[in-house]
């Protein structure tokens, strides 16, 4: 007859030697895939529409116009439509297909046409395909 509790189990060592490697691989993964949003904090109230869909295309540039009609290209304040045109043109210079020419466009819903249309035209002139950002109601 065996006595209970006498048998001592040997401590099983958990292999942790490769944990650091895995962790650094994960860090590299996050660092490569992270795309920091440059225009998140701009005062922009987006327009609403039923037709908006989740953006599938990767955007080559981000253009935004805030409620004060200040124009931003990739988060940097620019002078106006002409600067947007040259900036987008430069960013799209190395692109080959239409899929690479998507330009995200954010604009405050209350702005009037005279403020935003020159920028829209500038993006089109530079060869960009406009991804106009909105929200679902």
């Amino acid at each position: 007859m065996r006595k209970r509790g006498r048998k001592k189990r040997k401590p099983v060592p958990i292999p942790v030697a490769s944990m650091g490697d895995i962790a650094f691989l994960l860090i590299i993964f996050f660092m490569l895939l992270s795309d920091f949003a440059k225009d998140r904090d701009l005062p922009i109230e987006l327009p609403r529409s039923q037709e908006v869909q989740k953006t599938k295309a990767t955007v080559a540039a981000r253009v935004a116009i805030d409620e004060n009609a200040t124009v931003y290209l990739d988060g940097e304040r620019v002078g106006g439509a002409k600067d947007v045109e040259w900036g987008v043109r430069a960013l799209l210079a190395r692109t080959v297909t239409d899929d690479q020419r998507h330009v995200q466009f954010k604009c405050d819903s209350k702005l009037s046409r005279e403020k935003f249309e020159p920028v829209l035209k500038a993006i089109a002139e530079a060869g960009g395909v406009i991804e106009a950002v909105g929200e679902q109601p």
Binding site: M31, T55, I130, E131, Q136
Partner: peptide, 23 residues
């Protein structure tokens, strides 16, 4: 570092319409 990235990263779900404006 991983925890920092995971906490600081916000996955932005952008919704938009594609407007093809030919020149």
């Amino acid at each position: 570092l991983i925890i920092y990235f995971m906490v600081a990263t916000t996955l932005v779900k952008v919704k938009s319409i594609t407007a093809d404006l030919p020149t």
